[in-house]
Design a protein around this nucleic acid. Sequence first.
DNA 1: TCTGGGGTCCTAGGACCC
DNA 2: TCTGGGGTCCTAGGACCC
Length: 421
Amino acid sequence: MFALVDCNNFYVSCERVFEPKLKYSPVVVLSNNDGCIIARSNEAKALGIKMGEPAFKIKHIIEKNNITVFSTNFALYGDFSNRVMNILTSLVSNIEVYSIDEAFLDCSIWKEKYFHKQAMYLCKIIKKRTGIPVSIGISTTKTLAKVANHIAKQSSQLGGVYILNDHIMIEKMLKQFPVEKVWGIGRKSRILLNYYGIRTALQLRNMDRKWVKKHLTIKGLQIVQELNGEPCFAIESIINPKKEICTSRSFGVMVTDLQSLKESVSMYATRCAEKLRKQKSCAGSVKVFIHSNYFRQDLPQYNNCCTMVFPVKTNDTAEIIHYALKGLKKIYRPNYQYKKAGVIISNFVHQNMVQYSLFDNINREKSKKIMYSIDKINAAMGRDYIRYGIQGFNRSWKLHQERLSPCYTSRWSDLLRVTTS
DNA sequence: TCTGGGGTCCTAGGACCC
DNA sequence: TCTGGGGTCCTAGGACCC
């Protein structure tokens, strides 16, 4: 049996912990650059605000309904996520942290008659210790646990928990469940399935498996099997190292000059290198990309990318910046208004498994020591306390964050003060 | 005026081998 | 006139997730 624990409207719930007066009022959280809606409270959903909608397009709805708007505050959400996951880890032996706000639990060791009680207890304790409301769905496969979780969220009478383990109930629920809400069925698959008259999860479950494999690949077949109660996906409790790391941002303003692009690309390369060292890997190549604003079809468009291969796999910030900038120089064209740039590193090996080169003239031992020192100093003093000059100090291109809440739980100066009179 | 960011997996097709 | 067969590896791009 699998349980899926999912935090309700997670980012909004994090903001509400420190603004309890917003508990019953509409709240949304925006993406980076204050661009799109990425989280909505139930009240905001009820007002018809869609996920991913550009904020400027619904400005009138926001103003009319007095909706509270927050810029994204990942320091806060990341910290709350850790708190929730730590509670689950302390209470359940086999857990897979699936995303920032979701975890799968192996609950096969629970006695079936206690499923409901155990799940209710988890909801209660997480709410009590963090202030975050969660929903739990339980079933025989991960895909069905996802369905159960959706059901748990839909009805407030369920108290946040729904167990789907009876054949008749499974059939009944899948019949009401739109096929596009099934885990792994996205936009394209929905269009295809709808074309063939398949609209519910039950119809998908009963499809001919050869047909599914042909049209929806092995992934689709696994979904069908999981809907039939045949587990294809296990709990993956070991955190695998990442296979690629990407840092990219849209600019707050349009950027034309090479210097600003250099600064931003260097900064993204620095972030990538930090994450890379954290997982003790070295990368084999770096890809840099830039593009103009494709929403502005009135302006000339340009987008391009370039991959540079390192002579020896590395996690040295300076070296990664060097090759990223080399790539940038190759693809940069003047007279375009750039909206976004990014850096992706890939082809990782463990840092102790790097194949050196006879013709390498970089002192790798020295570089390792420098990186170690920089990471240590920045961890103690704050990000970019030590930085490369090319990253710049001006950052005219940086993103908009006009409605950022304080980092209540991760910055000393932002701690709440309580006074008594 | 204004439109996010970071991942994984799968497949088709090209390049190459004998 | 007539142009094979079987395999591996790599990569770009698509689809999907949160």
